[in-house]
């Protein structure tokens, strides 16, 4: 029975945080609903865990994309559609835009938010990898004030983040990339449309005078929680771009994955798939660097 569940709606952040802080029961925030509604559909019992549902979609502090002094701010409520349409994001963070473009289907992108994607924290959440690779910070708000968590530390395990029940994800802070930064998002889905990602990869790099000065390689859904492949990055950083052996390095990516996950039933598929994505991203990087 869902006798007592209440629905709350407010455009006021303070009022929302006050509701969430009320310890008499769990108030569940809902943004686009594209994750939450599916979960409720699959398990109606879930509703019993909530004292209420809080619609956060009208809270302006959680909306909008803006360039600030030395970072770009992306509100938690920014939809995938807005990300795709943003010229600022297209220019500065193309891999994030590509991730949004490859996510779900048009109605899902119209309604689903970047905040919801990250808070839901599925292993296959497509925007998480780019956020980690661009070294974004996540600004969380509660009645006690704000705290800032690096995107890479937000997810503890699939479907579990460090965000507390009394907190809302307010916005993401993406440092402005240095001049000449290249980024690429690669994804293999089981189905063209509406496929939850099986495996994806983000590469962010900067090549200066033929040398790789900065590199971040973050796989999505190949490992439970997106984190950079630091061993692989070490091998590439400081190298001459012309001397990079994409094939050898992509094999290394597969090995780094296995180091993190151990051998699993899915390993024989994921290892070569991941290697392919790494190779593709490195080939793209080389092409771009050659044209400079």
């Amino acid at each position: 029975m869902t006798e007592d569940i209440k629905f709350f709606q407010t455009d006021n952040l303070e009022a929302a945080l006050e509701l969430l802080a009320d310890s008499s029961g769990v108030i569940k925030p809902v943004a686009g609903g594209t994750d939450l509604m599916v979960k409720i559909r699959e398990d109606r019992e879930l509703l019993q865990e909530f004292a209420g549902i809080l619609d956060i979609t009208n809270i302006s502090e959680l909306q909008g994309i803006a360039e600030e002094q030395d970072f770009v701010r992306i509100g938690a409520l920014v939809t995938h559609r807005e990300i795709i349409k943003s010229e600022l994001l297209q220019e500065k963070y193309p891999a994030l835009v590509e991730a949004a473009r490859a996510l779900g289907s048009t109605p899902i992108r119209n309604r689903g938010t970047i905040g919801g994607n990250v808070c839901n924290a599925a292993a296959c959440a497509d925007t998480l990898g780019p956020l980690v690779a661009f070294e974004a910070e996540v600004v969380l708000a509660s009645q006690a004030g704000e705290r800032v968590v690096p995107a890479g530390d937000l997810v503890e395990k699939p479907y579990q983040t460090v965000i507390r029940q009394d907190e809302l994800l307010r916005y993401f802070r993406l440092p402005l990339p240095a001049e000449g930064t290249f980024s690429s998002f690669q994804k293999i889905g089981r189905r063209q449309a509406a496929a939850i990602t099986r495996i994806s990869l983000v590469l962010v790099a900067r090549v200066s005078q033929g040398t790789v000065e900065h590199i971040r390689i973050v796989p999505g859904s190949a490992i439970p929680v997106p984190e950079p492949f630091t061993a692989l990055e070490k091998r590439i950083k400081g190298q001459k771009i012309g001397e990079i052996d994409s094939k050898e390095l992509s094999a290394l990516a597969g090995e780094e994955m296995v180091k993190i996950t151990g051998e699993r039933w899915s390993t024989p598929y994921k290892k070569p798939a991941l290697a392919t994505l790494v190779r593709r991203a490195l080939v793209e990087l080389k092409e771009v660097a050659d044209n400079e």
């Binding site: 629905f7 594209t34 559909r41």
Partner: peptide, 26 residues
Amino acid sequence: GVGECGACTVMLDGQAVNSCLVLTAQ
């Protein structure tokens, strides 16, 4: 009923959305 098929698509403020994933109260 889970956002996969689009049979329930309506326009919300001019954009296509899956009405099976929207709470009416929203």
